[in-house]
Design a protein around this nucleic acid. Structure first.
Lengths: 193, 193
DNA sequence: GAACAGACATACAGTCTGTATGTAAGCTGA
DNA sequence: TCAGCTTACATACAGACTGTATGTCTGTTC
């Protein structure tokens, strides 16, 4: 019953197991309260494997954040592929974002722990390649179409993104989603031409 | 030259020294990278003193967060004591908030580390007693005066607060303040009746 | 198939946190 | 005023964790 595997398969399998296990534990207990001994035990490997594939615990956490960010961005893009009404796309993308962020623990991982562990700069850079990118594209499209007021795009992306982020966190902590979306809609109104 | 001090004076002096030293080090290096040995060395006391006055490292951090929050809230209240134009007060308070948050490291401490270390619930509770309270009062006044649309107050406070928070962080990281305030003003416009 | 590289497993060193114990100084009632 | 008590520390210790160094075994390559 010895399963014979190529080296590449071994590596990919081990890293995938580590990342998925880390994702679960970091979500359940948080980064600081998840020790690498526990983590590798749950993954069925040893700390040697972890430190062979990742520079340190932080690098593993970063990998988890990248995977989660990618999942979010894909969900948003699926919901708002970019039609002829940019503001409607923004709203649809926002709803999809809140849906994707409803996955338990995800908002804490991406919005609370990631900036603290990786630093705001690195966390923002990861976001800018994924969910943040979809928001930026949506805003640029709306600006180009003249649908929203000519404001600095970078600040628009940052502040509108922050609003959606905190809405996701609030909903995860039990706030009524309809209340949040009502306020979000009003704020978006203010950006309209 | 033995200075004779009452026990109460000793305690107050030691805790004050610990808190101010911790504030400096947590701001400079962050919570996780500030060890208690370093901290007490810088404060000129021993770890025994620290653990005599605080339950654990987290409790000391919490004390720092409370002090900083209080400073912010006082600055905001000084700038917006509550006049007859609630929206103008909101804007003035927001400016004061951004000013107060410009103190280097403060935004990271309060907006990034506090939620990660204390948890979002406890960080939000502390905020709700200080800066968050001033915002809530401002919004309630504006709602009562009919100056802004009748939206759920809790969601308004949360999401508008989030926008100001992220603006403070962005400014601390070099974003042009005028860009941020322009977008903030537009979003506030959306809330107006 | 021999040399090499990759993928781990194990052992170790350093550091940190929280606790338990010891001590000196303030406080308090008779 | 002083014996007894309490507060405010200082010191010593135990447990845990992170990152590194070293050893081994399997796949790969020439």
């Amino acid at each position: 019953m010895q399963e014979r595997r190529t080296n590449r398969e071994r590596s990919e399998g081990t890293t995938a197991t580590l990342i998925s296990t880390a994702r679960r534990l970091f979500v359940e207990r948080g980064y600081a309260d998840t020790g690498t001994p526990d983590l590798v035990m749950a993954a069925g490997v040893t700390r040697g494997a972890l430190y062979h594939h990742f520079a340190d615990k932080r690098a593993l956490f970063r990998a988890v954040v990248v995977v989660e960010s990618r999942v979010i961005a894909e969900a948003v893009e699926r919901a708002a592929p970019g039609g002829d009404d940019p503001v409607a796309d923004l709203i649809a993308g926002g709803e999809a974002y809140l849906d994707a962020m409803a996955e338990p623990g995800r908002s804490r991982l991406l919005l609370v722990e990631a900036p603290a562990v990786l630093g705001t700069a690195e966390a923002a850079a990861i976001d800018a390649e994924h969910a943040g990118r979809t928001l930026r594209e949506g805003i640029e499209a709306a600006l180009a179409a003249g649908a929203i007021r000519p404001l600095p795009p970078a600040a628009l992306v940052t502040l509108l993104g922050a609003t959606y982020d905190r809405a996701a966190l609030a909903i995860a902590e039990g706030a009524p989603r309809s209340d949040c979306t009502a306020v979000l809609a009003a704020m978006l109104d203010g950006l309209r031409t």
